[in-house]
Nucleic acid binder design. Structure first.
Length: 569
RNA sequence: GCGGUCGUAGCUCAAUUGGAUAGAGCAACAGGCUACGAACUUGUAGGUUGGGGGUUCGAGUCCCUCCGACCGCACCA
């Protein structure tokens, strides 16, 4: 073992060294935060920090001057000099080129920690994350595909980052829409015998309710046929709700998403949660009576107008559900995150108002997923539940596959409206980024298989990460650098609630691996340079570990082989 | 009308939250396999970040104002 590896600093220690230098130079009371990021251009160096910019105003000096001074002072430490091959302050940034041994040490850490690599320190914060939620009146549609993908990936990444995350889905099974559902099902049921039986104006169109009506006929026969609607509507609605929820759960599961809790609003009602939440608001002086109704002072938190929670006749409004559910969640979690669809942005103010009222300002965080436009080639598919021409999530899965759909949905930033071209996703399946990434993983698996056939001992040696010094090529070091970003990527995704960075990161890993694969052969050098072959295979192992982990976070499979003929959707 | 979100390469999207010469993929063009899977790789081209003002060392990002797209604006859910 080379003695130089012992003297090297870790990335954290390096950051601390630069922070100390800044503190001492400018008489700061505390250490300034020093974060390293990849420089804009690779020729600038391996890592860079912009710490000088943050100090410029207070020090009344140009960032470039500060950067130069900090770099010089930090380099007076012999351990920093041992780790840093070159420091070049430019335009206020401090660019650092690190010695190859630093990267070998980073690679060794990946191989040692395996699937645990990238895990953050346990955080004290408990997070309730609600997403995907849909009305139990029909099948899941494309927007749920988006929120399910984003929510599941965010949940997994938050857990990896060290948070205690609890995922929830709310079933909207109270109020007028259940009544509408009941009337719609009743009409469909009657139409099985009387095709001219009138369908309600505001009923839910779509063939799925016909299927449910047929289902009821299969179970109950003509039992409801001569029962007045008013007497059986609620039963029919409940039956339809259960069928819909079961199907929603099945599709979500097929999509790779499960929840810690499926919360029925009706059961919240039955358990007295509405009364509890409302009573607490009253205690806190956040509500008042006017015209016989009970209002919540949401305008105090920026809402356009105060909101009614209980009508004059005593029936709770829909907002009462939000009150009950969020009061419940706030008691179970430090932070409540809701991922909502695009038509819910009016709720943000009133949800903030609830957090304020309960003395937990800022504890409710709303992530709004923007709209999705579906296209099939040049044709825009207008999806209107009213018109009944919906494209279900299940149809999208059937058409492009779970992996492609999830990768695509996670890939896009949540607050960007987007266009999803089904035709393109299907036709270009071979050029789809997800296949590119999966191919990278399969290629590594194949490489390991081939080396194992030739020389099983070498595979064991690579896995044990003995001598990594032979890794000196630019593409090799670039790949290690990329893999070493993983803990930072995880922390960043968790902090910024930005899961869309993961697919891009996966693509970057795959691209760096493919370049490495082209440049750094393993099998052909097994006899001529066994040490080099071993070190390269070790790098392939580490790549596989990180790549598989990123794909797992995205809900995408990491295949050992890919079959060209069946690889297309 | 009021409020909100958003306009980035031909197309689909990034830009780590105010930092370096705005980056990727697809599409286009030109190269690379008798070494491990060519579903790969190397390169070229493509931009007044919707328009115009402002704030400061520095703006795609912040403020104002137009233009355009979408979403909300119930004692519906």
């Amino acid at each position: 073992m080379s003695p130089t590896t012992i003297d090297l600093l870790t990335l954290d220690e390096l950051g601390t060294a630069f922070a100390r230098a800044a503190r001492d130079l400018y008489g700061l009371a505390t250490l300034p935060p020093v974060a390293f990021e990849a420089p804009r251009r690779p020729e600038f160096g391996d890592i860079a920090t912009n710490v000088a910019f943050g100090l410029a105003k207070a020090a009344r000096l140009a960032p470039a001057v500060i950067a130069g001074a900090i770099a010089e002072r930090a380099l007076s430490d012999p351990r920093v000099r041992a780790t840093v091959a070159a420091a070049t302050p430019t335009a206020g940034f401090i660019n650092l080129r690190l010695v190859p041994e630093f990267w070998h040490q980073a690679l060794r850490a990946i191989l040692t920690r395996g699937a645990d690599y990238g895990r953050g320190e346990p955080q004290a914060e408990r997070i309730s994350l609600e997403f995907g939620s849909a009305n139990p009146t029909g099948p899941l549609v494309v927007v749920q595909g988006r929120t399910l993908s984003i929510g599941d990936t965010l949940a997994k990444t938050l857990r990896l980052a060290g948070y205690d995350v609890y995922t929830e889905w709310i079933i909207n099974d109270t109020g007028g829409q259940m009544e509408t559902l009941g009337r719609s099902v009743y009409a469909r049921y009657r139409q099985l015998w009387e095709p001219d039986f009138p369908f309600p104006e505001d009923g839910y169109p779509g063939d799925y309710l016909v299927a449910i009506a047929e289902h009821i006929r299969a179970v109950d026969g003509e039992r409801w046929r001569h029962v007045p609607e008013a007497q059986c509507r609620a039963d029919l609605a409940t039956f339809a709700r259960d069928v819909n929820v079961r199907e929603q759960q099945a599709v979500a599961a097929r999509f790779g998403v499960t929840f810690d809790r499926w919360q029925s609003e009706k059961s919240l009602h039955d358990a007295g949660a509405i009364e509890a939440g409302i009573a607490r608001l009253a205690e806190l002086g956040a509500s008042y009576e006017k015209d016989g109704a009970l209002w919540v002072r949401t305008t105090r938190s920026g809402d356009d107008e105060d909101r009614v929670v209980v009508r004059a006749d005593g029936r709770p409004t829909y907002f009462a559900n939000d009150v009950a559910y969020h009061y419940d969640k706030l008691q179970r979690a430090d932070r409540v995150i809701d991922i909502l669809g695009p038509d819910h942005h009016g709720y943000i103010a009133r949800l903030n108002a609830l957090a304020d009222a309960y003395g937990r300002s800022g504890a409710i965080e709303v992530l709004l997923a923007q709209q999705i436009t579906l296209k099939r080639g040049a044709e825009i598919i207008s999806m209107s539940k009213r018109a009944g021409n919906i494209v279900t999530l299940e149809e999208i899965i059937d058409e492009v596959g779970v992996d492609a759909a999830r990768f695509f949905f996670v890939m896009l930033s949540i607050d960007q409206p987007l266009t999803f071209d089904l035709q393109l996703a299907k036709e270009q399946s071979n050029d789809n980024p997800v296949f590119y990434v999966q191919y990278g993983h399969a290629r590594i698996a194949s490489l390991i298989r081939r080396v194992n056939e030739r020389d099983p001992a070498l595979v064991d040696e690579a896995r044990a990460a003995g001598m990594l010094d032979p890794l000196t090529g630019p593409t090799e070091l670039a790949l290690i650098r990329r893999l070493a970003e993983f803990p930072g990527v995880v922390a960043g995704v968790a902090r910024a609630r930005a899961p869309h960075r993961l697919p891009k990161y996966a693509r970057d890993i795959a691209a760096d691996f493919h370049a490495f694969y082209d440049k750094s052969p393993v099998l052909p050098v097994v006899e001529s340079d066994r040490g080099l072959a071993t070190a390269r295979l070790a790098l392939a192992f580490a790549t596989q570990t990180v790549l598989a982990h990123v794909l797992e976070l995205c809900g995408v499979s990491a295949p050992e082989r890919m079959d060209r003929t069946s690889g297309t959707a």
